[in-house]
Amino acid sequence: MNATATSPNRRLTAVVTGASSGIGRATAARLVADGWRVLAVARRQEKLDALAEETGCEVLSVDVTDDDSVARLAERSRELFGGELNAVVHVAGGALGVDQVAEADLAKWQGMYDMNVLGALRVTRALLPAVRASGRGDVLFVTSVAAHEAYPGGSGYNAAKAGEHMLARALRLELNGEKVRVIEIAPGMVRTEEFSLTRLGDKDAADKVYDGVEQPLTAEDCADVISYALNAPHHVNLDLVTVRPLAQAAAHAVARGKGV
C-alpha cells in the first residue's frame, strides 16, 4: 500500500519502539515496505544497525524507561520529520517470570510496569505534540491478551499490560474529536526469538511454551495486522483487535497436538 499523508508528496512517518527483535522489528520492516518513513528504536544498537542495513529505516538507540533517552528520541524525530509525525507504535515491553502472587518478585513487577506502562507513557507524552500536528495521527499500542485475561503465573504481566490497555483507553477519550486514532492490538501466542526466553530465562523452558502447537502466530502475522490498522482510511479506527493463533481459544486454553 502506498503510504501518503494529506499531501500527495509527503510520505507517512512512524516511530516504532522495541524494534530490535520480534513484533517491533517485523513492524518496522513492514511499514518501510508499505512506503512509510520509519524511525526504529530499541536499546541494542547492533540489532538496529542490522535492521537499518536490511530495510533502509532510520534507527536510534533508546531506553523507554529513561527520561533523557526519550527526550533524545523526541529531538531526533523532530530532526527527521520536521515536527510532524503520523504514528507512534508502542511495541517495547515484555514479561519477566511466571511467579504467582504469593511468591511475587517485586523487582520483576516493577520492571514490567516500567517497560510496558511508564515506557509507553513517556514516549506518548514526548511525541504526542508531533502526532497532533500531523493532521493524520495514530498512537498504536501492542498490548497482549494478558491485558484482558488473567491466568495463573501471569499476574505481574497481566497487571502491567492491563495498565497499558487502560492508558490506551483513557488517551482515546482524551483525544476524542481530534484527528488522532488510538489503536490497541492484543496478540495471543506469538512465537518470537526472545519473548518466552526473556520471560523464563531458559531455552528449553521457552521452547515448551509452544509444544504441540503447529502454527503459533509469528511476528510477521502481527505486523500484518498493525499495517492494516495504520493504513486503513483514517476515519476507520480499530479500537481493539485481539489476534490469536487458531489453536488458542484463551490465554490459558491452547489445543496441543491437534494439528493446528
Rank of each mutant, 00 (worst) to 15 (best):
N2Y: 06
N2V: 11
A5H: 06
V16T: 13
T17L: 08
G18R: 09
G18Q: 09
G22S: 13
A26V: 07
A26F: 10
T27R: 02
A28Q: 08
R30F: 01
R37A: 11
V38C: 08
A42T: 06
R43V: 07
R43T: 05
R44A: 05
Q45W: 02
K47I: 00
D49N: 14
E58G: 00
T65Y: 01
D67F: 02
D68G: 14
S69W: 03
S69I: 06
V70C: 03
R72N: 09
R76L: 01
F81R: 01
G82Q: 02
L85M: 07
L85K: 04
V88R: 01
A92E: 08
G94V: 04
G94T: 02
A95K: 07
V98I: 12
V101F: 10
V101A: 12
A102H: 12
E103R: 10
D105M: 13
L106M: 15
L106H: 12
L106V: 11
W109A: 15
Q110C: 04
Y113M: 15
D114I: 04
M115V: 10
N116T: 08
G119L: 03
R125L: 12
L128R: 10
P129E: 04
A130V: 02
A130D: 15
R132S: 08
G135R: 08
V139Q: 03
V139A: 06
V139P: 01
L140Y: 09
F141N: 10
V142R: 08
T143M: 09
T143N: 15
A147T: 08
A147P: 13
H148C: 00
E149N: 06
A150Y: 14
Y151R: 11
Y151A: 15
G156F: 14
G156Q: 14
Y157T: 11
Y157C: 10
A159R: 07
A160E: 10
K161Y: 13
A162C: 07
L167N: 14
A168G: 13
A170Q: 14
L171P: 05
E178P: 00
R181K: 05
V182E: 05
I185T: 03
P187A: 09
V190A: 06
R191H: 11
R191A: 11
T192D: 13
E193P: 02
L197R: 15
L197S: 04
T198P: 00
G201V: 07
D202P: 01
K203H: 12
D204S: 13
V209H: 13
V209P: 09
V209E: 09
D211R: 09
V213L: 04
Q215N: 10
A219T: 04
D221N: 15
D221I: 04
D221S: 08
C222D: 00
S227C: 02
S227A: 15
Y228H: 12
L230G: 01
H235F: 14
D239P: 00
V241Y: 00
T242P: 00
R244E: 02
P245C: 12
L246A: 11
L246T: 14
V254H: 02
V254Y: 01
R256Q: 06
K258N: 07
K258A: 15
